[in-house]
C-alpha cells in the first residue's frame, strides 16, 4: 500500500467508521461499506487531486457507494451493536452536555432508519461534518435545490415523528 495512502487510512478510519455507522445503522453493513469505500479509494488514488480535501473525496466515495448499493440497507433492521458491552460503550460515549439521552438516541435512530435512503444520506452528510448544501450537492452530484428539499423533507418527518 502506498505510504501516503496508509497515512490517510490511519487519519480517517475513525471518521469513516462513524459515517458508515450513521448511514447504515448496523454494524455488518457499516463494515462492508467501510471496506468497499477504502478499496475504491485505494484503486482510484492515482486520480485523487490533492488540491481537493481528502476527507471530502473519501466521504463522497462512501456516500455514493452507499447510495448505489441496494444490499447495504438489507440489514437495516438488525442491531447496531454486536454485544451489550458495545451498546453500553456507545451510550457512555454520548457527551454529558448532549441533548440525547440513550432513550432519545434510540428513538431518533429508529426514525432515521425509517427514512428513505436518499433523505438519510443528505441528512447524515449535513450533520456529520456540517457540510454546506453546495458541498453536499457536489459530493452526491445532484442539484443544490434537491439537497435543500431532501434535507427539509427529512427534518419535517423527524420533527413530526418526534412530536415537536
Amino acid at each position: 500500500m502506498n505510504k501516503i495512502f496508509e497515512e490517510y487510512v490511519d487519519l480517517y478510519s475513525e471518521d469513516l467508521s462513524r459515517l458508515c455507522l450513521s448511514l447504515c445503522l448496523n454494524t455488518q453493513d457499516a463494515e462492508d461499506l467501510f471496506q468497499d469505500t477504502w478499496l475504491k479509494a485505494m484503486k482510484n488514488f492515482s486520480k485523487y487531486n490533492s488540491d481537493y480535501p481528502f476527507d471530502k473525496w473519501l466521504f463522497a466515495i462512501c456516500v455514493n457507494t452507499y447510495k448505489n448499493t441496494l444490499k447495504l440497507c438489507y440489514n437495516k433492521n438488525k442491531a447496531i451493536f454486536n454485544t451489550l458491552e458495545d451498546k453500553e460503550y456507545y451510550m457512555n460515549s454520548i457527551p454529558d452536555n448532549s441533548t440525547l439521552t440513550p432513550e432519545a438516541y434510540f428513538e431518533l435512530r429508529k426514525i432515521i432508519s425509517d427514512l428513505p435512503k436518499k433523505l438519510r444520506t443528505v441528512l447524515v452528510l449535513k450533520y456529520f461534518r456540517d457540510y454546506s448544501l453546495k458541498e453536499i450537492a457536489e459530493m452526491l452530484n445532484i442539484p443544490e435545490g434537491t439537497v435543500k428539499s431532501r434535507l427539509h423533507n427529512a427534518k419535517s418527518i423527524i420533527k413530526r415523528r418526534l412530536g415537536e
Binding site: R18, L21, S22, E31, D86, Y90, D130
Partner: peptide
C-alpha cells in the same frame, strides 16, 4: 433543539473503529 439532536446523533463516537 432538533438541529442539536441531529448533530449529536451523527457525532456520537462509536465503539467500533473498523480496520481496513
Amino acid at each position: 433543539l432538533l438541529e442539536k439532536k441531529l448533530q449529536d446523533f451523527c457525532n456520537v463516537s462509536p465503539p467500533y473503529k473498523f480496520s481496513l
